[in-house]
């Protein structure tokens, strides 16, 4: 089985978000970058499937050279090789074009992604790649097994879940509990240094959206404390003052 895992580099989940240059640039100062948490699930499941069926796991990232530490960590977790498309990931359509171009060369059985990136939360790249390759895309997938070339999955729907199946190849947007997060071991870290990381230039340059500026949410005015003994007055306040009941 040949699996391609798409991994994006995002600010750590505890990052305090701020902007510079008159709110036109994200402030990278002091920010730690990690692989998208959902992408981590996708990678972990890919490594498990490789253990089960053999084959290869290739990681792809569209990003500049500073994402290579993150890519090496993916190799340490168990991917065999990696491709970095050397470009700023400007928008979902642009990223999808790069991934689709690499995917076309590779004939992958599965293209696994995260449900969404946690910076722009678009949840778009998998669907666009699926469309570009003319194969199904399914999201958010919480369980994935392969039996005789058919993927058996369950996916989340509003207020429940659905079991679905489809023949390979497929593009999937993954989320927990599809696999347990894997942490690299010493051997993985050692071998990751010598695994191939190919850098390619972008295949196309269609950018359909651009961000003009950023804003932070208005701070909440201070919290009104209600003594525990008078807890029931909360309900009155919610009705008459906050007007939400």
């Amino acid at each position: 089985m040949k699996i391609l895992v798409c991994v994006t580099s995002v600010p750590d989940t505890t990052t305090k978000i701020s902007f510079t240059d008159n709110n036109t640039k994200f402030n990278k100062a002091g920010v730690t970058y990690i692989a998208g948490p959902y992408d981590d699930y996708a990678l972990s499941r890919a490594v498990e499937l490789k253990e089960q069926f053999g084959g290869t796991v290739t990681v792809i990232n569209v990003g500049e050279a500073d994402t290579e530490t993150m890519i090496r960590k993916c190799l340490a977790i168990g991917a065999d090789d990696a491709v970095r498309v050397n470009a700023v990931p400007t928008d979902a359509y642009f990223v999808a074009e790069q991934i689709a171009a690499v995917a076309k060369e590779g004939n992958y059985d599965l293209i696994l992604m995260g449900r969404e990136s946690i910076d722009y939360n678009g949840g778009q790249v998998h669907g666009i790649v699926g469309e570009m390759l003319g194969i199904p895309s399914i999201t958010p997938v919480m369980k994935l097994d392969i039996e005789n070339g058919v993927a058996k999955m369950y996916k989340e729907i509003e207020g429940g879940k659905q079991t679905v199946e489809a023949p390979l190849p497929l593009v999937l947007g993954c989320q927990e509990p599809i696999a347990d997060w894997k942490i690299p071991n010493m051997r993985g870290i050692m071998t990751a240094r010598t695994k191939p990381l190919r850098v390619v230039e972008p295949a196309a340059n269609d950018v359909l959206t651009s961000v003009d500026s950023y804003e932070l949410p208005a701070a909440r005015s201070s919290c009104r404390m209600i003594p525990a003994e008078e807890a029931e007055t909360l309900i009155m306040l919610l009705k008459t003052e906050a007007k939400v009941l």
């Binding site: 678009g122 778009q124 669907g127 699926g130 958010p140 996916k155």
Partner: peptide, 23 residues
């Protein structure tokens, strides 16, 4: 935005080369 429309609109963006504003 919903778990259904997420998947549908991404494909539509690919199909129509449409700019998608999410959230």
């Amino acid at each position: 935005k919903s778990t259904l429309s997420d998947g549908v609109m991404a494909r539509l963006s690919g199909k129509m080369k449409a700019a998608l504003g999410a959230n």
